Measured scan of single mutants.
Amino acid sequence: EPLWIRPDAPSRCTWQLGRPASESPHHHTAPAKSPKILPDILKKIGDTPMVRINKIGKKFGLKCELLAKCEFFNAGGSVKDRISLRMIEDAERDGTLKPGDTIIEPTSGNTGIGLALAAAVRGYRCIIVMPEKMSSEKVDVLRALGAEIVRTPTNARFDSPESHVGVAWRLKNEIPNSHILDQYRNASNPLAHYDTTADEILQQCDGKLDMLVASVGTGGTITGIARKLKEKCPGCRIIGVDPEGSILAEPEELNQTEQTTYEVEGIGYDFIPTVLDRTVVDKWFKSNDEEAFTFARMLIAQEGLLCGGSAGSTVAVAVKAAQELQEGQRCVVILPDSVRNYMTKFLSDRWMLQKGFLKEEDLTEKKPWWWHLRVQELGLSAPLTVLPTITCGHTIEILREKGFDQAPVVDEAGVILGMVTLGNMLSSLLAGKVQPSDQVGKVIYKQFKQIRLTDTLGRLSHILEMDHFALVVHEQIQYHSTGKSSQRQMVFGVVTAIDLLNFVAAQERDQK
């Protein structure tokens, strides 16, 4: 057995438009009618409502009807409940999964919650491996369901041993009777949507819809739904939504950006999952974080739909894509998950301010006199920076000697690579993860907040409520011999709460 199987392995699926269902090699399930009293909570997966979006479509000038398939009504709160249950049931049916076995899954959280929910009911041990950027709410729900959680670096490539995929496979090879159901490759993922989600949409719309818009992560949702719609409703256009920084969209030119990270969760990847059939997507749109969270908040405030950030991405694209539809036509959007997962993220004004998705003037509360002053007023001194090749031991000596707790790590040209902190280095040394002679590049981390000289002290204040420091950066445009230009970030300084307090105190003292 291989040590790991690539999540982007070539698909062996034989589905073709027009091929009889009787030739399918898979076990198919028909939607079942729910009894009045459910035998367990797993029976509350599927049969989610279709809700008309009344205000947002009109606000953006849509002539067509805009409908939302509300997947956050599933038992675990997301569309991923469907595939989690289906993968477990299919693994039980073919004898792969037996009582007492362990389920391991690399996930952005929602599939993990679905699997942990099913594992709690069915009696399996469950280990979820997820990147650090995923919300604390997801972690809390997983723990409450009895799952064990392993976190991995957000910026690790999918084929790196440190990625959530790599760590999951390492655990599988170490733990007896453990299984990775593997949402990236498992046919049960798109089949769950082909058999149930798509049929529900067709039934709820009486077979009449002209466009379907869905955000894409593993691709199982859009693949399964689109294949069924292509068979039953061939005139329906399928629109895929991919965040900026991901590479799922086609044509490839759409993916060209210097951005590699994004805040919206559960969609987009740096590889093409095996289950994603991009041939059934008629057109791709890219979405960005700001519009995703703005539209998610709009869905909550104006439509009462308590959905997550990827739902915002989907609707932001839908109001663009559906401009081509006329009166009497219908566009369906998939709202994948609930706001429950993001209470401390985009639902929080403070978080939105820190990330730059909300401006101070958007909030009406009274601010102190210094709130709208610029960061450049602080008069920061030149920063202490270190090269990635310097040793951890030497870096600790320098920081202690100069009285700093942290320093930016830059390359020879001064471009920011990340940050090192005294606390992080000492804990890594004590844990045996690094040696004093190791290069400081081994303990770089990139989960820090950046701020510009033109940003306000109010925004800085919000950042420092949650973080010990902020890195002050400025952009530099560099022209190359080819005539092309590129933008790079340079370090201007490091600012802490002490710097802000000293500035405010000094100004008030001078005024007296």
Rank of each mutant, 00 (worst) to 15 (best):
F469V: 09
L384M: 13
C331M: 06
E290P: 11
G458R: 07
C392S: 07
R459S: 06
N288I: 15
D289P: 00
D349E: 14
R374K: 14
L399H: 01
E263W: 08
E361D: 13
E475N: 11
V339Q: 06
Q376F: 07
L353M: 15
L430Q: 05
T385K: 10
T257E: 02
D349C: 07
A413T: 15
G304E: 01
Q487M: 15
I396L: 15
V494Y: 02
D270P: 06
E265W: 01
D405S: 07
Q487D: 14
T395P: 10
V339L: 10
E252D: 15
Y262K: 05
D467R: 08
S461C: 13
A296I: 03
L457S: 01
E397C: 07
L464M: 11
G403V: 12
A316I: 11
G414H: 05
D510I: 05
T421L: 13
T260S: 15
R297I: 05
T279C: 15
V241H: 00
Y445C: 08
D282C: 13
R400A: 10
L399N: 04
G245T: 04
N424Y: 08
T260H: 09
E475Y: 07
M352R: 04
K355E: 14
G308F: 00
I398N: 09
A497F: 01
H372Y: 13
V333L: 15
G245D: 05
T395C: 04
E290F: 05
H462S: 14
C307Y: 01
P383F: 08
F448M: 06
Q259V: 11
S313A: 12
A322S: 08
I272Y: 06
M298H: 09
F285W: 03
T364Q: 12
G423V: 11
V504G: 10
Q507E: 15
L384S: 13
P383G: 08
A322K: 01
E291D: 13
R488L: 12
Q354W: 13
R330T: 10
G240C: 07
R509Q: 14
K367N: 15
Q326Y: 12
A292Q: 01
V420C: 08
G483W: 13
P408S: 06
I498S: 10
P388K: 10
P336S: 14
G458W: 07
K446I: 07
L464A: 09
V319I: 14
E258Q: 15
H372R: 04
K433W: 02
